[in-house]
Design a binder for these strands. Structure first.
Lengths: 243, 243
DNA sequence: GCCCTTCGATTGTCTAACAAGTACACATGT
DNA sequence: ACATGTGTACTTGTTAGACAATCGAAGGGC
């Protein structure tokens, strides 16, 4: 009952911009944030009826919300089977990080060619530095924003869209990395900073290499923490940063 | 009641392959092919009621099909507005082709590193050569298959998924290129062939460059044919191929 | 102990209906 | 004549309740 009020309230009280989103999207957004916050853990089942009754909407509406999240890769389900929050195994994690590296490294090369440093990325990295050391999960949002800013800076609508289709899963990975405290906030910030500097200097290849290292380390440490066999990238930062 | 029987029958009597797809997907597939075949032209409107009655299904079912195509980028619609077949302008065409080049050129570099030539791509190119010169539209399917084969050869699920989200629009562009007869089938085949050879030779950079030329020419000729200002890439093949 | 049947839970789809929004024509006022 | 307001038809968003098909697990028979 007040569940609805809360949901709508959360969007309405955003200042600056009005948002006349549909109910379907509102529910999807709420479920999404509950998944990211860990309120809905891996493997948690979500039946259409449950969602419908807990948000007090009709089942088709709940169904549409669920299908939206399935399309985003946050939920998993087969025909006639109940949707579940995805359970990312080591293989999926590698797949996700490699796809990221694929897109992002090429982005860095292009940005370096014009030496265009997106201000939104600079701001995002400042926000990372400002995060209290005691709240590692707060890093996730600005970290995500840093990377999406770089992608969007290319100015290609389809590329941004493709990256968006990955963002949900990427964020899930980030949450786990931070929950397990696998990476130091300062290191993240410093590497981001160096990447921005390399773009400004027009050294695209070096920026791409550093990004590969940046992502590779997160990837392999996460894989190791999940019980997979870690690759050599899990080690400490190389000399690239300290020059 | 017999509405159900008819609908299911339509799928069951497809010979060759069984298809236990949902009604929603079956309708989406049919609409898709009608869009590609030109039966539904740019700007054509598709109301939920029309689709529902013409396929003899309930409106929610039609709605779901339409939403699927909207997600694929084949249909366009805002809230409370009727869905229309997308009308790709010169800007969109450039956006699409650049996004393609973005993904595919990096793929070629990676494949060249291991000198892995996907057999499916080889077969697809053979099929292109076998197309009758009088039916330019028949080139579209194997051409599309050639490019998706290369992407899939990387073996990354997410990258394949991202490319899939582009395929619909890419195909629309291809159909127009072929309808307008902007490219010679033999040239397409020859360039594909050369790309495969460069991969086998481990020359990723050259393969990527040739691909850029291949896509750039299609892109700029299409843009020009649509009334936009064509870039220099529209010209004849350079010496890259004749060496 | 293993296989098969039955049953509950869940999803796919349908019909019917109302609310809300858009677009375009029409009428009004200045 | 132009801008503004009104209204009406069409379309979409959402709901309610229902039935069939399917999946998973529990229970019975061999």
């Amino acid at each position: 009952m007040e569940t609805n009020a809360e949901t709508y309230g959360k969007e309405a009280d955003v200042p600056g911009r009005i948002a006349a989103v549909s109910i379907v999207e509102a529910i999807a957004a709420d479920l999404r944030s509950r998944i990211f916050s860990g309120d809905l853990g891996s493997g948690q089942s979500l039946t259409e009826t449950e969602v419908a009754s807990s948000y007090e909407v009709a089942r088709p509406t709940a169904k549409a919300s669920i299908e939206k999240l399935v399309a985003e890769g946050l939920l998993d389900r087969g025909t006639h089977k109940t949707a579940r929050v995805v359970d990312l195994g080591p293989d999926s994690v590698r797949d996700i990080y490699l796809a990221r590296a694929y897109l992002e490294s090429e982005v860095l090369r292009r940005l370096a060619r014009t030496k265009a440093v997106p201000q939104t990325a600079v701001q995002a990295n400042r926000d990372i530095a400002a995060v209290q050391t005691g709240a590692p999960l707060d890093v996730v949002e600005p970290d995500m924003r840093f990377h999406t800013s770089l992608i969007d800076a290319v100015g290609n609508e389809r590329i941004s869209r493709m990256y968006r289709s990955l963002v949900g899963e990427v964020r899930l990975c980030m949450v786990r990395v931070q929950s397990l405290q696998l990476l130091d906030t300062e290191l993240i910030h410093a590497e981001h900073q160096k990447i921005l500097e390399l773009i400004e200097a027009g050294q695209g290849e070096a920026a791409a290499d550093l990004l590969d290292e940046h992502l590779g380390r997160a990837r392999e440490r996460l894989v190791a923490a999940m019980g997979g066999a870690a690759g050599p990238e899990a080690e400490h930062p190389s000399g690239l940063l300290s020059q």
